[in-house]
Computed example of a mutant assay.
Amino acid sequence: MSVYKLVCPHCRGKMRIRTSDGEHIFLRTAYLQCTNEACSWSCRATFEMTHELSPSSTPNPNALLPVAPSAMRRAALPQNDEEQLDMLDHKEHDHA
């Protein structure tokens, strides 16, 4: 079962990942198929991890990605959390 929300560009039906191959620690090649039997379109896709949005609590020293810019991190937040401050952008002020 796929955790991705993939939509068929032809019939707008749900797509499923039939199989995938790991090309690299950050890259997978996937073979997708539309679940709408009347359509049944299939394709090849690649999924690439490009930026770290939040750090791992169990980091792998071989899994280093650039930290995403604040705008990219904000775009990844659910729409109802837009008002929440980004901790990495917040700077403590001296109240002395």
Score class of each variant (00 low, 15 high):
Ala68Glu: 08
Asn80Gly: 05
Ala76Cys: 15
Glu52Asn: 01
Val3Arg: 10
Leu64Arg: 15
His90Asn: 03
Thr46His: 05
Asn80Ser: 12
Ser20Gly: 09
Met87Arg: 01
Trp41Glu: 10
Gln84Met: 14
Arg44Trp: 04
Pro61Gly: 07
Asn62Gln: 10
Arg74Asn: 01
His24Asn: 09
Asp89Phe: 07
Ala45Met: 13
Gly13Lys: 08
Ser42Gln: 15
Ser56Pro: 09
His90Pro: 00
Cys34Asp: 08
Gln84Leu: 15
Asp21Thr: 12
Pro66Met: 06
Gln79Ser: 12
Ala38Ile: 04
Leu88Pro: 00
Asp94Trp: 06
Pro55Gln: 13
Leu27Trp: 02
Pro69Gln: 14
Gly13Asp: 12
His51Ala: 13
Gly13Trp: 05
Ala68Trp: 07
Met15Ala: 02
Cys8Thr: 11
His24Cys: 03
Asp94Asn: 04
Ala76Val: 04
Ala30His: 04
Arg16Cys: 09
Gly13Ala: 13
Asn80Arg: 15
Ser57Gln: 08
Asp81Cys: 13
Glu23Ala: 04
Met72Ser: 06
His90Trp: 13
Ser2Ala: 12
Pro55Tyr: 02
Pro66Phe: 06
Lys5Ala: 11
Cys39Lys: 03
His51Asp: 14
Asp21Gln: 10
Ser56Leu: 03
Met72Ala: 07
Ser56Asp: 09
Ser2Gln: 06
Leu53Asn: 10
Leu27Gln: 04
Thr58Phe: 03
Thr19Asp: 14
Cys39Ile: 01
Arg28Ala: 05
His24Glu: 07
Thr35Asp: 13
Val3Lys: 01
Gln79Trp: 15
Leu6Ser: 07
Leu27Asn: 06
His90Cys: 01
Leu77Lys: 14
Asn60Thr: 02
Glu37Cys: 00
Leu85Gly: 01
Glu83His: 15
Asp21Met: 08
Ser20Cys: 11
Phe47Arg: 06
Pro59Lys: 01
Pro9Val: 12
Lys5Arg: 10
Ser56Ile: 01
Leu6Met: 11
Lys5Val: 11
Pro9Gly: 06
Asp86His: 11
Ala63Pro: 03
Ala63Glu: 00
Ser70Arg: 05
Met87Gln: 00
Lys5Cys: 10
